[in-house]
Amino acid sequence: MALTDSLRQFTTPPRGALAFGAALASMTFVGIATPVLVVLDDYPVFTGQAIRFLVGGLLLVGLLNLRRSPATTAPIRLGDWGRIVLLALSGVAGFNVFLIMALRHADPSAVGTIIGGVPIALALLSPLLARRRPSPHLLAAAGIVTVGITLTQGLGGGTWYGLAWGAAALAAEVIYHLVAASVVERLGAIRVSGYACLTAVPMLLLAAIVTDGTAAFQTPDSSEWIALLYLSVFATALAFSLWLVAVPRIGVERTGLCAGAAPVAAVVATWVIGTGDPQIADTAGAVLVAVGIVVGMRTRQSRKRAESRQPAVNHDRPVNQADPTP
């Protein structure tokens, strides 16, 4: 039996490593979406986002019929619906509205650097809301990732108005992660992601009408449809569900570290398709992001090893028996 358990430990990837892989894949899909969005420059922004989340949400809800589990059949309580609406308002519709407004009044690099504060914000707020002290190791890892994001994005500039919208986008992203952690374990990643995406669609359509009026309703051309399909399938359905798969397994703080993979993936994607050349700062930023994520992973592994070294409790011993003194 001991031999079987030892073999299983060597042949089965650690659950935490798989969760980190899911979070990294999620942010890679999001980062690759950066050059894809260029194709949609002439298409109404909020209409495109509404189509993206409608198609992505329908794909996720369709998957629920193929993958039955206790999480997919658990009843949705009133409080759960409230959290799902908050997810749609914050990390789906709200984040996109705030991001687009920020980009109209500030440089993309400045906005990206502000939103790059997600790892530090989560490393601080998640434990505080759970009434525990933030981990110094995870704060250090988050700081390394944030510096890497800053190097990759650059500082840039913009008006205070644009920077304020960037801060609102950061807040919306942080709220999304914290709220998702409270509901995803019971309802499942696919279910929460799908319902949040579909709930955000009317919000985005309203933003499209307010912003563009009747011009919001345009039929995409073939290249725009291809871009929207990538955004729907990879940057929404897969990215959202993979991210929420990771959250209950490695926690909000460690999942947040993987947000640094998005700007790195964006730089690599623009280089691959020939629309940009990586600079020294991009490479240094990518290295720092990787170092920060590794530090976060090793912190978790060290804690688990320490727990495994603790002596087992003898349950056959009477509770009131005192320890013998030397």
Rank of each mutant, 00 (worst) to 15 (best):
G21Q: 01
A181S: 13
A121L: 11
T325C: 12
G143V: 01
F234M: 15
P324Q: 13
P318W: 10
L205N: 10
A216R: 03
P263T: 08
T270Y: 01
L122G: 01
Q310E: 14
A74E: 09
G57L: 01
L228C: 15
G157Y: 04
L163H: 09
N96E: 03
G296I: 05
T113F: 06
H177N: 12
T325W: 15
D42F: 00
I51W: 06
A106R: 04
Q49P: 00
G31W: 02
R309Y: 11
L228I: 14
A259Y: 06
L151S: 06
T113E: 12
P318I: 10
A172M: 05
A290P: 06
L60K: 11
V267H: 01
I250T: 03
A71D: 12
L187Y: 04
V179T: 03
T199Y: 09
R68Y: 08
W271E: 02
V192N: 01
I115V: 15
T255W: 01
L122K: 01
V295I: 09
R133A: 13
A237I: 05
Q301E: 12
A22S: 13
L238D: 08
A50S: 11
R132M: 12
V295E: 06
P134S: 08
P134L: 03
A239L: 08
A141Q: 08
S223L: 11
F98L: 11
T270P: 00
T28L: 14
G148M: 04
T72I: 03
L24P: 08
L24N: 13
I51H: 07
G166A: 12
S90D: 00
S241N: 07
S126L: 00
L125D: 07
L128N: 03
D80I: 11
P13E: 09
I115H: 05
F217Q: 05
F20I: 07
S69V: 06
T28K: 04
R131L: 12
A180D: 00
V39R: 02
